[in-house]
Design a protein around this nucleic acid. Structure first.
Length: 505
RNA sequence: GCAGCUGUAGCUCAGUUGGUUAGAGCGCCUGAUUGUGGAUCAGGAGGUCCCCCGUUCAAGUCGGGGCAGCUGUACCA
């Protein structure tokens, strides 16, 4: 066969290839994720939330702002038209679909309505490290109450989740702010009114970058604009120096968020006094103060839940308290650079979202955990058990015409609750041993004609065998020694295997 | 979207001023070992040098255009 004859190359093969931004979930990831989801679920249940799921696809208009336009129907959101021409979209979060669900089933749900759900969401945007176009969120919401007790509770629940996942107190913090506070601050410097809506948005975006760019970077973005290292220029909000300074002082005002009560605030602070002129600010601050006293009464100090006026979160639908869970520890990535995980969960109050479907407003608050990011963080902390799970016990096929015997052994093991399988390939014994090794089998069962005539089986403990092999250099010796291999009567097979499995569990 | 950098084997990468049949390590497969996973040794498979056009006797190497990836930035429900 002239393999160099490129003119007669075999048919072009389909390239097995994942679309970019998507990922397969291998066995190890799924097992670890499953354990993590179970931990989160248990905490949510304990707080009284019930599981409810909605589908991955909704009518586009039910999801909110992203009505596809003619030119770019899939900007940000995966969308397509149903056969009745209606636009459908893959959900990009779990909150908007929940709002739809509550509105659609409003009359038969108890209010306040409390539920949780985990599911994949989809975003059609540029993927990056740790950012995918399909990822899982774990979400909990309280719908139908305006009480900030609901917000306070979610903050405490978020803290509980982190600790039950093995993240130490101090390695995370739930940061809480109130959109009304930021709105009030902007009012105080004359940024109220519809004509300033665009500026307010730019200001919020700038504040959101505080942890990444620092105060100086944000100052530039509040003013004329900022040029980054690549030379790319970002237009600023166009505030004057006094306005920019005012905002920066509020969002970085340590005493504001370190104070344990309103009374401890510095009432003579220029910024505080000027902000107090705004009713929105006062209302927002009062809510924050109430959240603060609620969580503190429950024993959650600022080392777990802390007020932080620089928290912004989403710009789209939050109306009151907003919160996010930040991981505060640093790790070193593969390249040896310092890396911080940042926000792994977030949420807030969205009083207008359900109301889009109903005549009245329905206040609601909730939050979502970014499951994959959190998993990456836990791995970095060494809080995930990365050891591969034990595979099935593998019964080797020594004589192809005795398959019924092997299948019987497998059935016996399975009946005893032991994961087991007969080798289903066609290769020889050596390959079967390799197979069992790669499956991480605790042991293999060997019965050739010799053993069958004697009414026995060989049981080889692969894990113990690998351990013993480390001391053996010579292959002939290694073969001869048959490390960790025992011969037992067929009747003792299940009991012996059970012992081996228990030993390695 | 914008900017910078990078595209050579499954993976990580070499590849000289342009020069014959494009290499290494790891991984994979086979054998030494007819019934034993490791280690060792020997052998093997695997390439559209991202794509197209151009320059040249000659292009993985030079030029132009495209595409893809990475990083930063913008957007982020």
């Amino acid at each position: 066969m002239a393999k160099t004859d490129k003119a007669h190359r075999p048919k072009p093969r389909l390239k097995p290839q994942l679309p970019r931004g998507f990922q397969d979930q291998d066995t190890g990831t799924l097992r670890v994720t499953g354990a993590m989801l179970e931990t989160i679920r248990a905490v949510f249940e304990r707080y009284g939330f019930d599981p409810v799921e909605t589908p991955a696809i909704e009518y586009t208009e039910a999801l909110g702002k992203f009505l596809p336009d003619q030119d770019r129907p899939n900007e940000g959101v995966f969308s397509f038209q149903d056969d009745d021409e209606q636009w459908l979209s893959l959900r990009y979060d779990l909150t908007a679909p929940l709002a739809r669900y509550v509105a659609e089933n409003f009359d038969r749900l108890p209010k306040p309505y409390r539920s949780y759900r985990a599911g994949y969401v989809f975003r059609n945007e540029k993927p990056g490290p740790g950012r995918f176009r399909q990822f899982m969120q774990f979400d909990a919401d309280t719908v139908g109450t305006a009480s900030v007790a609901a917000d306070a509770e979610i903050c405490m629940m978020a803290a509980d989740v982190m600790e039950e996942l093995g993240i130490k107190r101090g390695d995370y913090v739930v940061r809480v702010n109130n959109r009304k506070v930021l709105d009030g601050v902007m009012e105080a410097i004359g940024l109220d009114g519809d004509e300033n809506a665009g500026k307010r948005l730019t200001v919020l975006r700038a504040i959101d970058k505080l942890d990444r760019l620092g105060a100086d970077g944000v100052r530039l973005l509040l003013g004329g604009g900022r040029k980054d290292e690549s030379g790319d220029f970002t237009k600023g909000a166009g505030l004057n120096e006094g306005q920019a300074e005012f905002i920066l002082n509020v969002v970085t005002f340590e005493r504001f968020f370190e104070a344990s009560s309103e009374k401890e605030m510095d009432q003579n602070s220029e910024y505080e006094n000027r902000s107090r002129a705004s009713e929105t600010y006062n209302a927002g601050f009062a809510e924050l103060d109430e959240i603060r006293s609620l969580v503190q009464a429950a024993g959650y100090g600022p080392n777990r839940v802390k007020i932080d006026p620089s928290v912004v979160r989403g710009l789209e639908y939050y109306t009151g308290p907003v919160y996010e869970v930040e991981l505060t520890f640093e790790t070193v990535n593969e390249k040896g650079e310092k890396a911080r995980f940042g926000s792994v969960a977030g949420g807030g109050r969205y009083d207008g979202l359900v109301g889009r479907f109903r005549p009245d407003e329905t206040p609601a608050t909730g939050f979502s955990i970014g499951v994959s990011r959190l998993l990456a963080a836990l791995s970095a902390l060494g809080r995930v058990d990365t050891a591969a799970d034990l595979g099935p016990v593998v019964v080797l096929v020594m004589d192809r015409d005795r398959i019924a015997d092997y299948q019987t052994m497998v059935a016996g093991l399975r009946a005893a609750g032991i994961r087991a399988e007969m080798y289903l390939g066609t290769s020889g014994m050596k390959a079967q041993m390799k197979y069992a090794d790669r499956r991480n089998a605790p042991c293999v069962i060997i019965q050739g004609s010799n053993e069958r005539e004697a009414g026995v089986v060989q049981i080889k403990d692969l894990i113990e065998g690998a351990r013993m092999a480390k001391g053996i250099e010579d292959h002939a010796e290694w073969k001869e020694a048959r490390p960790a291999q025992v011969e037992v009567e067929v009747g003792k097979l299940v009991d012996t295997v059970r012992e081996i499995v228990a030993r390695h569990h």
